[in-house]
Structure formats: structure tokens, C-alpha cells
Simulated assay, not measured.
Amino acid sequence: MTKTDPKQLGAVEAGKPFALALAAGTETARMETNLRARSETLKLAQAAAQQGRTGEAMEHLKDHIVEVSENSAVVAAERWLSLPPAERERTGIYVSGRQLRDEVNAAVQTGLAANGEIGPDRMTLTVLSRVNATREELRQVRTYAPGMVLEVTAKQSRQKLAKGRYDVLKVDAGKGIIELRGADGQRQTFQPSRIGAQGDNQVLQLLERKALTVYTGDTIRWTANDHQRGLINADRAAIAAIGNDGLTVRTSSGMDLKLDAADPMLARLDLAYALNAHMAQGLTSDKGIAVMDRRTRKLLSARNFLVTITRLRDELTLIVDNRDKVEMGIGRNPGDKTSALEVTERLGAAAARGQAADKPQEVGKLQEPEKLPELERTITKVVPFEMGI
């Protein structure tokens, strides 16, 4: 059984056919009672956000909104760090995008290290962060840039790519060719346009490198799967020890696992003090500190806002740099994503209107353009199932 809330963040790839099936009228069980919130304020705010009434939701939260003129990431970290350790465990930090997430994570880590709660041993890693790109975007040369990494999880005979990681060395937009270098040092060309329009989007992943310093005691999350060792994407772990030849992590199941310097999973981890909305879907915490910044315009959306405030049971502190502009940004941007089928429908309807407008009309009588049949659209509100990481 699949559970989804169509008003939260939309699926771009695998989940989109399911969303289209719902729009076409597929029989659906409806669960319309949100059992997560326990405080009256959150119940009212979540109900208003669910109905798209952003202003009303913000009004319900007015006593819990903190408007700051300084660095909002630092303010969020400071508020979380000032909590007793037991309260920190009950309080999640939610942000509106990747950049804010990295800033909050760095600020929290700085505070913990300064207070001696993590460390003193540390190690700087080069980790790989996924570039959020659909399969169609991966077929476009402009998506790639030198310094990125293309990870191939299954042999691609059509492109003559074996399983492994490839450095992006050069992008030739004119010829539509990417120059890659494999782990063996061999160079080869790659044509993104030859990627099949259909297929598993997980087979090819585009990644960016970034430097990440971790301390003993740091809380991390995995950014890829290693099912054989029980390391699951988005699951949390802790840095138990750091040595010259690698580090030891304590997994969510309580096992200690040694990762040597050459272990590929050392490149697939990140700090986990703050989560963005896409990571937060399906999670629940008793309390939360949320950060929204007017500068992240594309990420200020009704869907992001809904996901953020519906993660919580009891209490929310919403930190914003400008309440009016954040509210306006959320209200103006529904955050919808469309599939190729939906775009085709829109373009086909536009062409039909243009064709109809060119037909001669009877004198004194306006001829209405023929309406194309549309798929019946239904809105299904359900409560996302909860999973722990």
C-alpha cells in the first residue's frame, strides 16, 4: 500500500506515475485526519496550511515566529544548542534548502566543538553531495560542470560505461559531449543525450564534491546505500572514533563499523543536525526549530511550508529573516512539479485554442474553441507514514 499527500513535495521521477494515476481518478482510500499534532496551535496551523491558507497558518503561529536581522542559521543553532541534551533529542531542525542546511549544520558543529561535546579528534573528508536532477535534466549537457562526479551503479552498455565513479573533466556544449575520467585514469567521452528517456533514475547520479570536517561524537547521515552492511540512505549514525587509517561509526542499530581511508562510504556521508524539507518527509519530532529565508525564493513554497510544519507534535519555533516576505513567497509559490505528460497536455490544449481561433466565425456569432477532454483530477489528502532515521 502506498501512502502519499499530494499537497506535500511532489515526486519528480518514480512517484510521478502514481500522482498521475490519482489525477486520472484511480480508486483511492482517503485518510483525512491528521493525528500527529497534539497542541491546539499546531493543529490549527497545519489544517490551514493543508488548505493552502498560508496567511492564516502564519497567524496561528505568530507567537512562535522569531524575526531576525542577523544570520538565521546561527540563531537556529544557538537556540538548539541552548537546550538540555534530552530536549535536543526531541527537537528537530528543519530548513528550506541545502545551503541553509549546511550553514546550520556547521554552526551546530562549531558550538558542540567549542563546548567540548564533540572531538577532540577530527578528520577532513571529501564527500559527494547529490545534484538534484531529473532523468531528463541528466540528458542535458548544461546540467554538467567540470569537477562534478558521475556515479554509475550498473553497467551502461549503450554509453560504454562500466559500474563506478567518473570525474567530469570537460563539457563541450556545442558537440553535446562530456569528457570523463574513470578510477583507472582512462579518459572517455559521454553523450548525455543518449541516456534513455525512461528507466531507473538511480542508475546514474550526478554528484558534487565538498570538504567536510567531522569530529568524534558528530551525528551524521548516509547519502547513499550500502545494503550489505546495513547502511541506508538518510539513516543516521555517530562518529565513534577517528584514527590515522580511517574512522569508526556507530550505526543506528548500535553496531560499530570501521571504515578505512579507501572506503567508498566515507564519501557518502554528511552532518545530520539539520534536515531540509525533502529529507524530512515521513519524519516526526516532538518539537522543531524551522528556518526560512526570503533569499531562497524557489524553496519558499506552500509544499515546503506544509512539510515543515507537519513534522511536529507539540511545538514549533519558526525563524525568518522577514516575516512578510517569507509569507508572501510561500503564498505565491505552490511548489508544484509537472511531468512530461502534464506539459504535453497543456501544450496540446494551447495548440487547439490557436487552431480554433484561426477558423472563420459566423457573422454575429462567436465560435467557442473546442474543448479538449481533460483527465478528471481529484485531490487526495492523506497522512504520510512515519519512519525513523
Rank of each mutant, 00 (worst) to 15 (best):
K258A: 11
L269F: 00
Q355C: 08
V74C: 07
Q205L: 14
Q361F: 03
T126A: 15
T2C: 10
T91F: 04
D260V: 04
P192R: 05
D321S: 01
V214R: 01
A349H: 09
G196Q: 12
G348I: 07
V152I: 10
K371C: 09
D172F: 02
T91G: 03
I177H: 06
A29E: 15
L257Y: 15
E368C: 07
R30I: 12
M255Q: 13
D63R: 09
V214L: 04
A114L: 07
R297H: 10
A272V: 08
P192L: 02
N71Q: 06
R158F: 11
V343D: 06
E78S: 09
R313N: 00
E67V: 03
A133P: 10
A57D: 04
H278P: 03
G164R: 03
A19L: 10
M58N: 05
L375M: 12
K163N: 11
V66T: 13
S82L: 13
D286E: 15
S301T: 01
S339G: 06
G174R: 10
A154K: 09
I93H: 00
D358Y: 11
L100S: 12
M58G: 01
M148D: 07
A76E: 05
T91N: 02
D260H: 08
T310S: 12
G164W: 03
S252V: 05
Q99W: 02
G25R: 01
G196N: 15
A224Q: 15
A211W: 07
A240D: 13
A183E: 13
E368H: 09
P360L: 10
L204K: 07
G230Q: 03
L207W: 04
Y273A: 05
R142M: 14
I93G: 02
R297L: 09
K337P: 00
N276Q: 02
T213P: 00
E89Q: 14
D167F: 02
M31F: 15
P192V: 03
D321R: 00
D63M: 05
S39M: 09
R187D: 00
L257V: 10
N201Q: 13
H278I: 06
V149T: 14
E376I: 12
A57C: 00
Y94V: 06
R38P: 03
M328E: 15
S339F: 04
L81T: 09
T310W: 03
K175C: 05
E376A: 07
T251K: 01
T219F: 07
I118K: 04
A49C: 06
K287P: 05
